[in-house]
């Protein structure tokens, strides 16, 4: 099953890369600022949210804005990939019904496109950070890389699962959207995790898989600390389990997928 899955992706690697290229080009086509939007969007959002919250919490925007920015980037990536995943197969109907292209490349396509956007956003973050808190920039930030790798696998799994479920249940897309919106507030992004813990709601993030993936990117990229090894271990375990499940689902759905499109 795994072998078949990866072989198919390898076989269609050129198709995959040309789709990803196309998607990235199309996203900002005809816009004056083009790909800069990939940077400006999360930056602007962080300024808005960070600005508002630093007033509400009465804290220093210089510290608060990067904090929000760091947490928002991985969230936008996970949310965007899961949401895009719902249309991965349905949007590729023309190809899946006419050619023997391997279906598994389509959720991966969504994930890769969103991942490239995430990298742009992280670049924006680092630039801003260099100005706001140059003293924090250091080698600890390298721990972001394993975090990104695990998060990528998790996001791909979400896209796979969403793509398969949406084949049979088209109501899944709005449902997932709502669910993710809820999870966004349950994940310590706009507030520190301790705030939940203080009020006895630590279960809310302890049992929330998104928490671990956001954490392993958000914390190391701020350069001041690195999450405990158990956070990485839990994230790795979740990623492995969900990824296995998602491959099983995709490979099962692949047979006769053309009937459902």
């Amino acid at each position: 099953m795994f072998k078949e899955y990866f072989e198919g992706i390898w076989r269609d690697r050129y198709i995959l890369s040309s789709f990803v290229n196309k998607d990235l080009q199309m996203k900002y086509r005809r816009s004056k600022l083009g790909v800069l939007w990939a940077v400006l969007m999360p930056l602007g959002l962080s300024l808005i949210i960070g600005g508002v919250y630093s007033v509400i919490y009465d804290s220093d925007p210089r510290e608060f804005i990067p904090l929000i920015f760091a947490g928002l980037n991985p969230w936008i990536f996970l949310n965007g990939t899961a949401d895009g995943g719902t249309m991965a197969f349905i949007g590729a109907e023309g190809y899946l019904k006419q050619t023997n292209v391997d279906a598994q490349i389509f959720p991966l396509r969504v994930t890769l496109v969103n991942f490239v956007n995430l990298l742009y956003a992280l670049l924006a973050f680092l630039t801003v950070y260099l100005f706001l808190q140059p003293e924090a920039v250091g080698p600890r930030m390298l721990m972001t890389i394993p975090g990104l790798a695990l998060m990528f696998i998790f996001a791909l799994s979400l896209a796979n699962i969403a793509a398969v479920i949406n084949l049979d249940i088209r109501d899944y897309q709005p449902m997932q959207s709502l669910l993710l919106q809820g999870l966004f507030y349950a994940t310590p992004i706009l507030y520190p995790a301790e705030m939940l813990a203080e009020r006895g709601f630590e279960m809310l993030y302890m049992w929330n898989p998104f928490y671990y993936f956001v954490e392993i990117v958000k914390v190391p990229i701020q350069g001041t600390s690195v999450p405990g090894w158990h956070v990485y271990a839990i994230a790795a375990a979740i990623a492995a389990a969900v990824f296995t499940l998602s491959i099983a689902l995709v490979m099962r759905a692949k047979k006769g997928m053309a009937f459902k499109l």
Binding site: L96, K97, G256, A258
Partner: peptide, 8 residues
């Protein structure tokens, strides 16, 4: 489509 391998 059967011959093409699209429909099993």
């Amino acid at each position: 489509k059967l011959l093409a391998g699209i429909y099993p």
